[in-house]
Simulated scan of single mutants.
Amino acid sequence: MSTPSQTVGPYLGLGLPWDDGPSVVDEGTPGAVWIRGVVYDGAGKLVPDALIETWQADADGRFDHPDDPRGATSGFRGFGRCPTNDEGEYGIRTVVPGALPGEAPHINVSVFARGLLHRVVTRIYFPGNAEANAADPVLAAVPEDRRGTLIATESGDGYTFDVRLQGEGETVFFDV
């Protein structure tokens, strides 16, 4: 007997935050930037109880993971998690990742929110990498008129990346 699927529900904010939270790198890390944004639902309303989770390579394009034998920079976690606030805003302090073999610099993003049966997965790419972005096989597979939903914009102390779960300007999500 199987149980029915459940949406993520409002309790993810209680069970999923972790100690390092939005800090992929420590304060004062050279090259540290903030990735900030807002999560919107299909009606364009703010989502005050979503959770953004990131996983990325370090500035040299290496992961802190056993599957990457090169290893990451000492002390680099590569993982961040931030709940949205009452205005639907999140922020992750990190470094811009280096390029991976055959891929442009990017950050992997999972979004959890009430009403979703499963997390949705997307990527953040960076402006100023036109050549690398054009050669990235994942970004190239996205219809050209939708690629902009995956590219952050520069802001004062880093980048802005809004997530639109549905509707006009919906962020591209990947079936993983």
Results as ranks from 00 to 15, higher is better:
residue 101 P to N: 09
residue 142 V to T: 08
residue 128 G to N: 05
residue 138 V to G: 06
residue 83 P to G: 08
residue 62 R to Y: 11
residue 26 D to K: 12
residue 89 E to M: 11
residue 66 P to K: 04
residue 142 V to F: 03
residue 123 R to A: 07
residue 35 I to P: 00
residue 81 R to I: 03
residue 28 G to V: 06
residue 92 I to S: 01
residue 149 T to Y: 00
residue 125 Y to K: 01
residue 70 R to P: 01
residue 77 R to Q: 05
residue 122 T to I: 02
residue 139 L to S: 05
residue 96 V to A: 07
residue 42 G to T: 14
residue 46 L to N: 15
residue 114 R to D: 13
residue 41 D to S: 11
residue 75 G to V: 01
residue 147 R to C: 04
residue 147 R to L: 04
residue 80 G to Q: 05
residue 70 R to N: 01
residue 49 D to T: 15
residue 80 G to V: 02
residue 44 G to N: 10
residue 78 G to K: 01
residue 109 V to R: 06
residue 143 P to R: 06
residue 112 F to E: 08
residue 33 V to I: 11
residue 91 G to C: 10
residue 35 I to S: 05
residue 101 P to F: 09
residue 50 A to C: 12
residue 74 S to D: 12
residue 51 L to K: 13
residue 98 G to L: 05
residue 123 R to D: 04
residue 24 V to C: 03
residue 31 G to K: 06
residue 80 G to I: 06
residue 148 G to M: 02
residue 142 V to N: 02
residue 92 I to M: 04
residue 77 R to H: 07
residue 40 Y to Q: 10
residue 94 T to R: 03
residue 36 R to P: 05
residue 90 Y to F: 11
residue 28 G to Q: 03
residue 30 P to H: 12
residue 139 L to H: 01
residue 150 L to A: 02
residue 130 A to Q: 08
residue 27 E to V: 13
residue 130 A to L: 07
residue 107 I to T: 12
residue 113 A to R: 04
residue 49 D to C: 13
